[in-house]
Simulated scan of single mutants.
Amino acid sequence: MACAPAKQRAGGARAQLPPCYYEGYLEKRGAKEKVSRRLWTCLCGNTLYFFNNAKDTHYVEKLDLSGFISLVDDCSRDRNLEAARLSLRMKDGEIKLTAPNLEARELWKGFLCSVVELAVPSSLTLLPGQLHMLKEVVDKERLRRKSRSLSRAPSSPLSLPLVGEIPPCFRPVSRVEAEVLLERYPDCGNMLLRPGRDGTSLAVTTRQDLNGSVFRHYRVTQKQQGGYMIDVENPIPCATLYDVINALIEKTSGTLQPFLLEEPYEENITFVSSNDENGEKTLHCARGGLLSRGPSLPPKQGTDRWSPRHQTLPKCPSPQSLSTETPLSPMKRLTLAPSPLAQSFTEELKMKLEKRQKAGQE
């Protein structure tokens, strides 16, 4: 089936993708794959999205072209004599692509190189109308990247989108705030997961005692193929964020333990009322007693034992690995706002920063 300029479709995940410049069937075989798969392929922005068929709205795989190295013809023969092969070299490996025919291969090369290099390649055998399409794609992609960079919020350690299950030891705090938390509540764990400084990665902050507090910070990056990597001298691959925490627990023989702290909740219902005569406002505590609207619900069975609501300070969990059970549904995108707890120790942070500045001057 020949490829064709893309037409936007609505519905499902496809509607949330960047603008689609080109699409059609390609056979794809990765470096670790033994056989090729025939997938409907869409070039959306500077990423290739792969679907099982042309009607699917949710992609099964994607390939970010930011790791692009080269794209060359593969002259090896295919069972289909009309098929034309390509070799796409990326920083993390080589991918074999097969287009239905020579014309489709030239078009794919044109669109891919135009998007990656933001320039129409001059070495391709294309018609004037096809070259005009590539020029339009270059202009659209330049505009998309420019508008994306302008609309992107500045990187902040307190704002990071996460996908998947999040361990309860995650806190949306900065590096200094993480150190303060671990030092302030030493009985509630000594390892905390947080956003990284660049806003695109994560970090693990740990605290141990050695003639005083000793802090360590480990960078955790998300891999393009899925999963995470602890960036140390010998990188540690992890399938989930839970595995990141469990790996550090195991590597330290349980010396590092996840930080679990419940933020306080009110024990009574209070409300403010205003005096109609003098306008004076008074804080009241609602009366106790059971509501008489109906029977109370029975307690749920099998409650997650890692849920913070079932922990009472200062008691903290005994050393053991985290369970992957979580009340958060997987693949849910979360935008994290600053924690209310971070606001409670502003002065403590200020003193810590001033101490660091003085130490730097000395």
Rank of each mutant, 00 (worst) to 15 (best):
164 G>C: 13
122 S>D: 14
167 P>A: 02
317 P>K: 04
240 T>K: 09
142 R>C: 13
65 L>V: 03
225 Q>Y: 03
21 Y>E: 04
314 P>C: 02
83 A>P: 15
213 S>I: 02
260 L>K: 03
270 T>Q: 08
268 N>C: 09
123 S>A: 11
17 L>T: 12
94 E>W: 00
140 K>Y: 09
313 L>M: 09
175 R>M: 07
318 S>A: 10
63 L>E: 01
161 P>E: 11
74 D>H: 14
346 T>L: 11
319 P>V: 04
43 L>N: 05
98 T>N: 06
82 E>C: 11
10 A>G: 12
288 G>L: 08
195 P>R: 02
28 K>Y: 11
2 A>C: 10
2 A>R: 15
197 R>A: 09
135 K>W: 01
68 F>N: 00
144 R>A: 01
54 A>E: 09
350 K>G: 01
202 L>G: 03
33 E>T: 12
41 T>W: 12
178 A>N: 06
230 I>T: 00
344 S>V: 11
169 C>I: 01
196 G>D: 11
7 K>L: 14
229 M>H: 06
259 F>H: 13
286 A>Q: 07
198 D>M: 08
239 A>W: 04
247 A>I: 08
59 Y>F: 15
320 Q>S: 12
159 S>C: 12
80 N>L: 13
331 M>T: 08
236 I>K: 03
223 K>H: 09
102 L>F: 15
44 C>P: 08
77 R>E: 14
3 C>W: 14
132 H>C: 06
360 G>Q: 14
170 F>V: 01
170 F>A: 08
39 L>P: 03
299 P>W: 04
257 Q>E: 04
